[in-house]
Deep mutational scan, measured.
Amino acid sequence: GATAVSEWTEYKTADGKTYYYNNRTDESTWEKPQELK
């Protein structure tokens, strides 16, 4: 099967917290998305 390329990108805020942003859905989350686990 084809490997899905994750749409999630990991970013850090100014105070060093990590969050994740999805370019396709324009969604952001503090929790690590399922695709990255």
Rank of each mutant, 00 (worst) to 15 (best):
G1F: 13
G1N: 14
G1M: 14
G1R: 12
G1T: 13
G1W: 11
A2P: 14
A2L: 14
A2Q: 12
A2V: 13
A2S: 14
T3R: 10
T3A: 13
T3N: 14
T3E: 11
T3I: 11
T3L: 10
T3F: 11
A4M: 14
A4K: 11
A4R: 10
A4N: 10
A4F: 08
A4Y: 06
A4W: 07
A4V: 14
A4E: 15
A4I: 14
A4L: 14
A4D: 13
V5Y: 12
V5N: 12
V5R: 10
V5Q: 12
V5L: 12
V5H: 11
V5A: 13
V5T: 14
V5I: 13
V5K: 12
S6I: 08
S6T: 12
S6Y: 09
S6V: 10
S6M: 08
S6R: 07
S6P: 11
S6A: 09
S6D: 09
S6N: 12
S6Q: 11
E7T: 05
E7Y: 07
E7P: 06
E7F: 05
E7V: 06
E7A: 07
E7L: 05
E7N: 07
E7K: 03
E7W: 08
W8K: 00
W8Q: 01
W8I: 02
W8T: 01
W8M: 00
W8L: 01
T9L: 12
T9K: 12
T9E: 10
T9D: 06
T9F: 09
T9S: 10
T9V: 15
E10P: 04
E10N: 00
E10R: 01
E10Q: 06
E10F: 02
E10D: 00
E10A: 05
E10W: 04
Y11T: 06
Y11P: 00
Y11L: 15
Y11S: 06
Y11F: 12
Y11D: 03
Y11W: 06
Y11I: 14
K12S: 08
K12P: 03
K12I: 12
K12D: 02
K12W: 07
K12R: 13
T13L: 04
T13Q: 05
T13R: 02
T13A: 06
T13Y: 03
T13I: 00
T13S: 07
T13M: 05
T13H: 03
T13G: 08
T13W: 02
A14Q: 11
A14D: 09
A14P: 12
A14V: 11
A14F: 04
A14H: 10
A14R: 07
A14G: 08
A14Y: 02
A14T: 09
D15Y: 04
D15H: 03
D15I: 01
D15K: 03
D15Q: 06
D15R: 01
D15V: 02
D15E: 09
G16L: 01
G16P: 00
G16A: 00
G16V: 00
G16H: 02
G16N: 04
G16R: 00
G16W: 00
G16M: 00
G16I: 00
G16E: 02
G16S: 01
K17L: 10
K17S: 05
K17M: 08
K17Y: 08
K17A: 05
K17G: 04
K17I: 07
K17N: 08
K17P: 01
K17H: 09
T18K: 08
T18L: 08
T18N: 07
T18D: 05
T18F: 08
T18G: 03
T18P: 05
T18Q: 04
T18R: 05
T18V: 10
T18I: 14
T18H: 06
T18A: 06
Y19H: 04
Y19S: 01
Y19A: 04
Y19T: 02
Y19Q: 04
Y19P: 01
Y19K: 06
Y19D: 03
Y19N: 03
Y20W: 15
Y20T: 00
Y20E: 02
Y20L: 01
Y20H: 01
Y20P: 03
Y20Q: 00
Y20I: 00
Y20K: 00
Y20S: 00
Y21V: 09
Y21E: 05
Y21L: 03
Y21I: 08
Y21W: 04
Y21M: 04
Y21F: 05
Y21G: 02
Y21D: 04
Y21R: 07
N22R: 01
N22P: 01
N22Y: 02
N22G: 00
N22K: 01
N22D: 02
N22W: 00
N22I: 01
N22V: 01
N22H: 02
N22C: 05
N22M: 01
N22A: 00
N23A: 15
N23L: 09
N23W: 15
N23R: 10
N23G: 07
N23C: 15
N23M: 13
N23I: 12
R24E: 11
R24Y: 15
R24H: 11
R24M: 14
R24D: 08
R24W: 14
R24Q: 11
R24P: 03
R24K: 13
R24L: 15
R24N: 10
T25W: 03
T25Y: 03
T25V: 01
T25L: 06
T25S: 04
T25N: 04
T25I: 03
E27D: 04
E27L: 05
E27P: 01
E27V: 06
E27A: 04
E27R: 03
E27M: 05
E27T: 08
E27F: 03
S28R: 15
S28L: 15
S28V: 15
S28Q: 10
S28M: 15
S28G: 11
T29A: 08
T29V: 14
T29W: 07
T29S: 11
T29E: 04
T29H: 05
T29I: 10
T29D: 03
T29F: 08
T29G: 03
T29K: 07
T29N: 03
W30K: 04
W30A: 06
W30S: 10
W30G: 05
W30D: 09
W30R: 04
E31S: 07
E31L: 08
E31F: 08
E31R: 04
E31K: 05
E31T: 09
E31I: 11
K32N: 07
K32M: 11
K32T: 09
K32W: 04
K32V: 11
K32S: 05
K32I: 13
K32F: 05
K32Q: 08
K32A: 06
K32E: 08
P33Y: 03
P33R: 00
P33C: 03
P33Q: 02
P33T: 03
P33W: 02
P33K: 02
P33F: 02
P33I: 03
Q34N: 14
Q34S: 13
Q34V: 10
Q34Y: 10
Q34K: 10
Q34H: 10
Q34E: 15
Q34L: 15
E35S: 12
E35R: 03
E35M: 05
E35L: 04
E35N: 09
E35I: 05
E35D: 11
E35H: 08
E35Q: 08
E35P: 04
E35W: 07
E35V: 06
L36W: 07
L36C: 09
L36N: 08
L36P: 08
L36T: 07
L36D: 09
L36I: 09
L36Y: 12
K37W: 15
K37D: 13
K37L: 15
K37I: 15
K37P: 10
K37R: 14
K37A: 13
K37V: 14
K37E: 14
K37M: 15
K37F: 13
